[in-house]
Amino acid sequence: MFRLLEDDRGRMESTVTIEIDGYPVIARIGETVASALLREGASWSRTTPVSGARRAPYCMMGVCFDCLMLVEGEGLVRACQTLVRAGLKVQRQTGPRKVGPSC
């Protein structure tokens, strides 16, 4: 839904690669996971635990809690408040969080 401005495309030295659902995503150092996600084709962040509806980042300032994702296995993390770092593994949170020995 979003694209980086032209003047920033050349700054490859300031990028890192994160993983969203196993796919590599290039992100700018200093940006948030939600911000990187919004440049992806599928920019939704989770499905709700109630109806399974898809949600995407809405407010980007930490007050709507719709960009909740699993970050390095941690649940209920607001992607809009999480800075990217090289190799960060992020997953869309689908439905209620699974709890158990495997987590």
Binding site: M1, F2, L4, A56, M60
Partner: peptide, 24 residues
């Protein structure tokens, strides 16, 4: 208003400031 693709203007302005994203 909960559909992916509906966002606040404030959210878009935050993206403008960092990392400098604009709607495609």
């Amino acid at each position: 208003w909960t559909l992916p693709g509906v966002m606040t203007v404030g959210a878009a302005q935050i993206l403008l400031k960092n990392p400098g994203s604009v709607p495609s």
